[in-house]
Amino acid sequence: MNGEPVEAAMPARNRAEAALRLLLPIVVLALGVLVWDLIVRLREIPPYVLPGPGLVFRTLVADWGLLFDSLLVTLKTTLQGFLLAVAGGVGLAVLFNQSRLIEYSFYPYAVILQVTPIVAIAPLLLVWLPQEAAVLACAWIVAFFPVLANTTLGLNSVDHNLADLFRLYGASRWQVLRRLKLPAALPYILGGLKIAGGLSLIGAVVAEMAASSAGAGSGLAYRIAESGYRLNIPRMFAALVLLSLAGIVIYFALALFSHLLLRRWHESAIARDM
């Protein structure tokens, strides 16, 4: 009765579908830029209110050196905040999973940290910490909770029968964690990472904004605030475009990472023939 394993085929229909998924957003983008350009031209909107796409692009090229350095600063903070959030979120979730007492004691505070608006905490952190550390702390605070919450959910979503099986074979606590709970939680953890990537960028931006009101900083958000004060709206837009692009790249990088880890076994990563 050896049936053949079902090979995930990639028929022409799927390929057309994939092309469409890539093409349609680009068409929408092109249309949007066109409309934007038309509105600016036809209504003769001055560039200090709304610069046209051409001007924004020229500014991006002209100010590239300055903006790219700022981008690197923001990306560095984002990445550091993200990595700390992953380590902290997964680490705390595992700790909570191993000990109910620790979970009951500290989980509420993790929630409080999450529900308190980061915009309100950022100025305080800037008072207490050096500027770079404060920005990093903001990125971390915003990003770590989704990792914690998702990992906790994942660790608790282990198949009960599999857990029984591990018990039957006398698995140690460590074996259960490493061989059963963490792999079972992996799709959830990766889901948390996808959210955390975007959030750590937001956290970094919020903190840079707060820092910029004190006249300090060098990240992209600082450039945006600074350009706003100086009514250099084209540069503001150029920085904004870079920030969006950074967010998009982060999201897709994490989605790809997740896909590569799950493609052999998890339903979410498997293409289905309809």
């Binding site: 029968n161 029984d164 099986l165 039957l168 074979y169 792999p183 052999r264 076994w265 998890h266």
Partner: peptide, 29 residues
Amino acid sequence: HGEIGFVFQEPTLMPWATVAGNINLPLSL
């Protein structure tokens, strides 16, 4: 632990492991 083999109503396999990895589980534990 060595005396008992248990088969559940569901196959109860680890989806992240290969067939060999699944069968090897009791040994590697």
